[in-house]
Design a protein around this nucleic acid. Structure first.
Lengths: 266, 266
DNA sequence: CGGCCACTTGAATCTAATCAAGACGCGTGG
DNA sequence: CCACGCGTCTTGATTAGATTCAAGTGGCCG
């Protein structure tokens, strides 16, 4: 693997706190590989042989059952994924597929586990990382169970906007069918839901999304720090006062998080 | 707290591998408390001040949004819960309520984190625990997105049966409305879904569940190790040959796991 | 230019939610 | 001991939300 991609990896919370020694030894035994788009990296049920670190491109994590598949996450550089399966020396619960040409660093799982046993700081970092992953998945499940499709889409748009730095406009980072699957609906439903949302302060033309009425959209999404992450609310709060909302919104790709399912009245 | 409840805690994977010294010091600063049924232990959004360990009783973890609530998990003795929030020194993403009179050991989060920093084995155990929790939540989300209500209920029943030791009969460990919420449907829907399932090899009378045709029920649930856990399939496999299925099934309470949501054809 | 694929739209269908009412069980208090 | 009241559970009728199936559009690439 190239030396110039190591600093990016080193900067990840997972690798930031460990000793330089351990880090170097891990990089020594890792190797990077380039993959073409639409390639299956691994399938759910495979033994977790490698921790994956994406340094370029984009990867989809999806789950399959009974001939159906659903997108669970989209991962973008630089980040590690499928850590839990490696830690548990178990099988992947999700399958991975490249969405673009991607460059991925592969770190053998046994060596990873060994490093954790020998470097307490690394173990702590992995623990923290897994806690974050767990909480992301809890939020995903909450989103699915508590919000309907329209609310999930609204929340997702607001989150994207926040991740893009609080701009009211951005371009979809992924295909709509993929977004639909992530949100837990069909592509057709997403199409219709988008139309519905036009009445609620957002304009979508092709892959271009523009929030025209933030307040209205927020009223639909009902953002909640315990569901959407506190960062979203904060970024959005920052965005109203200082940004007079440029008439021509700037493009801004980014990945990430919403879903739908059953509720229970109080 | 009582001395006789310490061994049970010590036996948990989270506490099993740590030094006796650390364990003792943790128990020293922890205290047990008894709570009546239906009591709110904490609410989502509260600061995570304590790791909770349930020693007796039963606790429900639920999420709230916009006046609705949904059950995310039911925890039974002996197990620790809400570890991720403590590790991250963050806020609870879920609220907790006792379902029965419960006895709970409270371990101050700062001390927990400190112990992890000083005892690498403990950090490793926590990491492993969080990896497991993460994977449980991934399965919950997959279940919600890939299966419909009928399939989720069928899978849940099979899992309960497996947890109960592979018996074809057991009694519901929780109220139906709670189960419904966990499965991501309304109480009314669960009632109807139960009726539907009677045609698929399961008889439900009040809280008594009896599987009359395992094979048929499995065909509905389409069990999959990457969705239901490998233990379920194994327990069920063990159950067919050696157990001629007693004509009068034995009661057998137990907790746990299924859900519903969107799909995407392959 | 042709074909493929993502996306959209429409119509019909289905699953599950909602609203409303009644049955049943359980515990409390008269 | 029984009656009452509450909450769970069930059932029915209706509605709402989302899927399915089918067809058509448009963009991109060979």
């Amino acid at each position: 693997m190239r030396d110039e991609e190591k600093p990016g990896i080193r900067r990840l919370p997972l690798f930031r706190e460990m000793s330089q020694e351990t880090f170097d030894s891990l990089m020594q035994v890792s190797y990077a590989q380039n993959f073409p788009p639409q390639l299956d990296l691994f399938g759910q049920g495979d033994r977790a042989d490698f921790l994956h670190i994406i340094v370029e491109g984009m990867v989809e994590l999806h789950a399959d059952w009974n001939g159906h598949e659903t997108v669970m996450a989209v991962v973008q550089p630089v980040s590690a994924f499928i850590l839990a399966a490696c830690v548990r020396d178990s099988r992947y619960l999700m399958s991975a597929r490249t969405l673009e040409r991607s460059r991925i660093v592969l770190l053998p799982a046994p060596i990873l586990r060994d490093a954790m046993r020998h470097d307490p700081d690394f173990a702590m970092a992995a623990m923290s990382e897994l806690a974050v992953s767990y909480r992301i998945m809890v939020r995903h499940a909450k989103n699915l169970k508590l919000r309907n499709a329209r609310e999930r889409l609204a929340a997702w748009i607001l989150r994207q906007s926040a991740l893009a730095g609080g701009v009211p406009g951005f371009v979809l980072p992924v295909e709509k069918r993929l977004l639909a699957s992530f949100l837990g609906i069909t592509a057709e439903s997403l199409s219709r839901t988008i139309r519905l949302l036009q009445a609620d302060g957002v304009m979508i033309d092709g892959a271009r999304v523009t929030i025209t009425d933030m307040e209205r959209l927020c009223r639909v999404a009902r953002l909640d720090p315990m569901l959407d992450g506190s960062d979203v609310k904060e970024a959005l709060a920052l965005m109203d006062p200082p940004r007079p909302a440029p008439s021509r919104p700037t493009p801004n790709p980014a990945p990430s998080a919403a879903g739908q399912a059953g509720v229970r009245a109080r």
